[in-house]
Design a binder for these strands. Structure first.
Length: 203
DNA sequence: ATCAAGATTACCT
DNA sequence: GGTAATCTTGATA
């Protein structure tokens, strides 16, 4: 009997490519975080940042202590804290020295939904509406998954947090728009999300 | 040592 | 739709 093929972890080569390519291909992939409970979700919305030409990127003004991981090789986790309340998580892309990354803006919950509800709302149960609000924004994704600065610089080809390969989302099912919540380089069409997915952050 | 800004969210009218 | 909350980082002195 032909057994169903298990999805494989994305390896270093996937991440060490041009940031816009990686951003688009990250759609539909599954992010997994292993603890006592395994949490996972399908990536449905991302934004690309490129310090070479993009004034909104944290790496635009050069290397600092905070953004140094973004200048490393692709496949590492860049987590930062903002607005005094929220963590946002990024997947570093490209070669050593490039300063590019993809912000994970929204995921569709798959495994460990009970724990995500607890992390986000501090209770065990949630209404359908609340479940749609679990992970539909970058700060919410980090809160639901319990991602903090402890995970800064983590190797995404390791065993704690990693990504599982999935079939590519077809171009006709990808919506391309301008990015959200930034004040510089606002016209770059570097936000990508899966068409008609209920878990994207609207706004 | 001090200060301003920020890749957001939740709650208000 | 508008805005307060909240604190880390990086820049300036």
């Amino acid at each position: 009997m032909p057994s169903k093929k298990k999805p494989q972890k994305l390896n270093r080569n996937f991440f060490v490519r041009e940031v816009l390519t990686v951003a688009k291909e990250l759609l539909g992939k599954i992010i997994v975080k292993k603890n006592d409970v395994t949490l996972s979700g399908k990536i449905v919305e991302v934004e690309a940042y490129n310090g070479d030409i993009d004034e909104a990127a944290h790496t635009f003004t050069g290397k600092t202590k905070r953004n140094s991981i973004m200048f490393g090789e692709g496949g590492f986790f860049y987590v930062y804290f903002t607005y005094g309340a929220h963590y946002c998580c990024n997947v570093v892309t490209g070669f050593e020295g490039q300063g590019t990354a993809v912000l994970i803006r929204a995921v569709e919950p798959i495994d460990g939904i009970e724990l995500m509800i607890e992390n986000r709302f501090g209770k065990k149960f949630a209404t359908e509406k609340e479940i749609l609000n679990l992970t539909n924004g970058p700060g919410k994704v980090c809160q639901a998954f319990g991602i903090t600065k402890k995970h800064y610089g983590l190797d995404l080809t390791g065993d704690e947090i990693f990504l599982l390969n999935q079939p590519k989302v077809k171009d006709e099912n990808i919506v391309v728009t301008k990015r959200i919540g930034i004040k510089k380089s606002v016209d770059l069409p570097w936000r990508f999300y899966i068409k008609n997915n209920p878990y994207i952050s609207r706004r």
